[in-house]
Simulated scan of single mutants.
Amino acid sequence: MATPEKISEVGQILLDTKQPLKERFRALFTLRNLGGEQAVESIAACFEDGSALLKHELAYCLGQMQDVRALPHLVAVLEDKSQEAMVRHEAGEALGAIGDPTAIKVLEKYVNDPVVEVAETCELALGRLHWLEEQNKNKLNSTQVSSDNKEEDVDLPENPYKSVDPTPPARVASVEELKATLMDENLPLFKRYRAMFTLRNLSTTDAVLALAEGLKCSSALFRHEIAYVLGQIQSPACVEALTQNLRDLAESSMVRHECAEALGAIATPEAMSVLQEFLSDTERVVRESCVVALDMSEHENSGQFQYADGLNKVETKSVEVNLSTPVQAVTS
């Protein structure tokens, strides 16, 4: 168990703007893994940082922690129009991920936000919360056959990646059927996301190539999520598709950044070479994503077990300090 003092030290690494960004990211994910009120507060304290990438990741981690104590912090970020679009979007997604129905009212306020990515995210988050409500209702009425217990919500596939996703998966179907749903821009985004996550869960090469087609769809939010799931799968089969979107300077920075992080997770020599090209990109969020992604690649190729190693680092530093302290002479 980490002591409050050690959690505080990890939090200080996260807050320290003089620390390399890759070390702050590792500290963030350490706090996410530790969980608890102190970790939530340490993460939330960093929302005034200048890095949109880091703030976006703060919101993501708070959502994955599913701790209701994060709700007021995330609501404040969503409502703050001075925050970058990708940060507000991630705050909205995190409100859906936590799954508490008290977030419904604030999400409803922003389903028509002038920032399309924020509006679409809030729509998806509301969809997830309403879906969870129906699932809970069906559990309570399990002795009866509920008209709300739709066939599409029975026997859903397990998520091997253990992430809290913006929508549930769809039922397993052929890759062709799922791809048709994924690519149909006349369908609700919620339904297309469900097909996306089932393809992600299948993780076959055919499924990966079907997902990669989604990088050509019109919604930047959708393309960004496609890149995210491709990073989860870590298949070299999508390196070319991710590279095309990263190299497209007309592409949304939110999408390009996610493509960079996905390439970092895939961690092949080709993917790492592409990331090196964009370390001086004109977009700060892309530059920083490439730095973090290369650190992720190094971790993937190192054989080390723990990426979120912030706790180990503060403990090692503590030991080093103790060893360097001169031994005092004992006198009687």
Rank of each mutant, 00 (worst) to 15 (best):
F197E: 07
D206M: 01
E251N: 06
L209Q: 13
K162R: 13
L78Q: 01
A39R: 05
Y161I: 08
Q232K: 15
L14V: 11
T143G: 02
S42D: 08
K6Q: 15
K22N: 08
P188D: 06
V208D: 01
A250G: 15
T30R: 05
G50N: 13
E23A: 14
R247V: 02
V274W: 05
S219K: 12
S163H: 09
D206H: 04
N112T: 13
Q276L: 13
K109P: 00
L209C: 04
D281M: 07
A293M: 06
T204G: 09
M65L: 13
C61L: 00
G11Q: 06
V77C: 07
T331R: 11
E120T: 04
P168G: 03
L71C: 02
K18A: 09
V106A: 03
L323P: 00
E176K: 15
S218I: 10
K162L: 14
L311P: 00
A97R: 13
P157F: 07
S146Y: 03
L71W: 00
A267C: 10
N186G: 15
E298W: 04
M1A: 12
E261H: 03
I104N: 04
V291T: 14
L34T: 15
P72Q: 07
A227Q: 05
M183R: 01
T17L: 13
F197W: 13
T3R: 12
P326E: 08
N301A: 06
N322A: 15
Q244L: 14
R256E: 03
P166A: 13
R287E: 06
S146Q: 15
L78G: 02
L279D: 00
D100L: 10
K55Y: 01
V286F: 07
E298D: 11
E258V: 08
R284A: 14
S297L: 05
N186I: 01
M86N: 12
L209N: 08
C122W: 02
Q12S: 14
E84A: 15
K137S: 11
A39F: 09
E134F: 01
L21P: 02
L95E: 03
A39C: 05
V239F: 02
N159G: 04
V164R: 13
E213L: 07
H56V: 03
V286S: 03
V321G: 00
S302A: 06
E288S: 05
K139I: 11
E123T: 12
L53H: 03
E177M: 08
I13T: 07
Q19I: 01
A119L: 02
G96M: 11
E185I: 06
T282I: 13
E158I: 11
V327K: 14
